[in-house]
Design a protein around this nucleic acid. Structure first.
Lengths: 348, 348
DNA sequence: GCGCGTTACTAACGCGAGTTAGTGAGCCCG
DNA sequence: CGGGCTCACTAACTCGCGTTAGTAACGCGC
């Protein structure tokens, strides 16, 4: 291990350029209103480059009053995180957006019942937070919001007055079901992605109902089954839906993971997809295109979601006005799990 | 937005407890060698609690010379990150381990061709780095290592003298193939998880060869096909393996994602799994247990991997000796994609 | 009653930058 | 020739905390 030479400080740069530290600070922070002549400017930049100068983060944070760091809080259990196929991509989106504004991202896993936000915020290690998937009853979060801390929720939290960024679950679900309707389906079931206590699940179900209503089809609770995150729940839900006397011709499954189980249940019941039953998923996880058959689904723009959350927080930190709620559009990806309805619903 | 009152500083705590700032610092940093009487100790702790005091991170970093932050560098493209089903879990492992030592985790996405490490390290925003998936030709990384910066590589980087943490790919692959051998299989193919330029792919193939060699079976290049991360590559590889005259009875696919495509190819070729062909995967992604049939695979302990990397870096930062290379064991998870070989290889 | 050792603290410096108030030099104008 | 103005900078303070060196008070032995 070679001996590392001491870091260069702004004083070193000043000495080398033959000016004071203040002037160095002005130049390196691009303060153009200070009337530094181009020649001096150049000399300082050159000295900084030659010395390999990088401002000390902590010193800058202490003096400047901003850590230039944003916190990404995962308000989920370890298992939920592990099962979230799109989390890494979201994180990427946050980080790249943050970086264009000079921020870095600190990740803080916080089990729903476990740790606290306060240390992170009060220690000023982060200038603001993006909180992913908080529960409705997250009191500490509500308190921090009330205290005026810069916080953006990724997801939705109806009762707390905090800016949030989410995808348009309802419109996405509606698009999915409209696709099925356009193909001529009328008996369309729905398997939720999670218990309805989760707002995303409730919203997707609402989108399903909206589409049906717009098409003049009565909502039938017998056609709705509850999934819960994983494929096993989708298998069970689909199986229960198949016992009905009047068979369905299509299903909207509000999660690709759950849809994977549903597809299997259909196969086991001898129903072909899409010949007998069409299936639309939601999320567009990386494997969805490789399902058997490749899954028609609603793409959740994970990267863009992260980027939007990052931008919202950065805007807020810069004092720019922030929208109370940002909803990102989803996109229908048509693959091979959907087809026209063969059984016309009792023709002439 | 309520007006936030000014943060409490250690001076406030000192004033409230009727002592000096120094004494406060001693108590809150639990310096037991300073002979502070219990009564004073208690008074200070109480004052801190009442004021809701949290030490200022930047100030502490500046004075103490350590940021108490570690960087997690993703040396991968955005697409690779999105496709990595286990990344979030690994991150969780790093973060929880880091936290027990008082560290936080800063995530730095760095496309292979894109950004640089230097700013992060030289600005002392992090005390050390965990680098995930660097290329062999990562010159900047090699330079930083040579400069003596505290770095842990997650994965392997044979030519650079840097401590690394990885799973035992070779042993895992060997276990997978041994499982097939114990079931009586003799014609066992292998589909790699990635091109062999990736050390993980080469190691897993080596494990496959070792197991065969130990069983006295000759290695046959015709039984090896190259996968590349996704299911499509597995489908292609499997299809190519099926054209052989002497049919295989088992495949070791060095990635669950790739195995997913392989399973599909088998189904399309009319080969039943496991009746006609047994399949063992690698990684144990969350969906693997829901494959059709549920996939026998080698579990990659993602959380433990992150934790081990975190611990290694924390140890290094604390000046404790660090192992040059840590290899985590994998575990065979037997599900339903493997079964005994029906075709005895030419009995008596 | 002086020296010595504890005990229980505190004063003051330093970390590395941002920032405010100010200063000397040069020039113009009257 | 002096007052005022711009130009090009700088001295010095600040952020909040860790830490070193030091000190005042007290007890104890001789």
């Amino acid at each position: 291990m070679t001996l590392r030479r001491r870091r260069a400080t702004s004083a070193d740069v000043a000495a080398r350029a033959g000016v004071s530290r203040t002037t160095v600070s002005f130049v390196l922070n691009a303060r153009t209103d200070t009337g530094i002549p181009p020649e001096t400017w150049r000399r300082i930049e050159e000295a900084a480059r030659e010395l390999g100068y990088h401002p000390h983060g902590a010193a800058r944070a202490l003096a400047g009053g901003a850590s230039l760091t944003i916190g990404f809080v995962l308000r989920q259990s370890s298992e939920q995180v592990a099962a979230d196929a799109l989390l890494a991509e979201t994180l990427w989106g946050i980080a790249s957006e943050a970086r264009t504004a000079g921020y870095r991202v600190l990740v803080e896993p916080l089990s729903p019942d476990g740790g606290r936000y306060s240390e992170l915020l009060h220690s000023e290690r982060v200038d603001g937070l993006i909180v992913s998937g908080p529960r409705v009853d997250d009191e500490e979060l509500a308190a921090l919001v009330a205290d005026g801390f810069p916080i953006i929720v990724q997801g939705s939290l109806p009762d707390v007055p905090v800016p949030s960024v989410d995808i348009d679950n309802r419109a996405g679900a509606r698009t999915a079901v409209e696709h099925l309707l356009e193909l001529g389906h009328r008996r369309i079931a729905c398997i939720t992605n999670a218990p309805l206590a989760y707002t995303a699940a409730a919203d997707r179900l609402a989108g399903y109902r909206e589409a049906l209503a717009a098409a003049g089809i009565a909502f039938d609770t017998a056609l709705v089954a509850e999934g819960a995150f994983d494929a096993a729940s989708g298998h069970a839900a689909m199986t229960s839906l198949l016992v009905g006397a009047d068979p369905i011709t299509a299903v909207f499954v509000a999660s690709d993971m759950v849809a994977f189980g549903a597809l299997r249940a259909l196969r086991e019941a001898g129903r072909r997809v899409p010949a007998d039953v069409s299936v639309v998923g939601f999320d567009d996880i990386p494997l969805a295109r490789h399902f058997d058959p490749p899954l028609t689904t609603i793409r959740l723009p994970a990267n863009a979601l992260g980027a939007a959350a990052g931008r919202a927080l950065v805007d807020r930190l810069a004092g720019r006005p922030t929208r109370e709620r940002t909803l990102l559009p989803t996109e229908l990806i048509v693959r091979e799990s959907t087809a026209g309805c063969s059984k016309s619903s009792g023709g002439p």
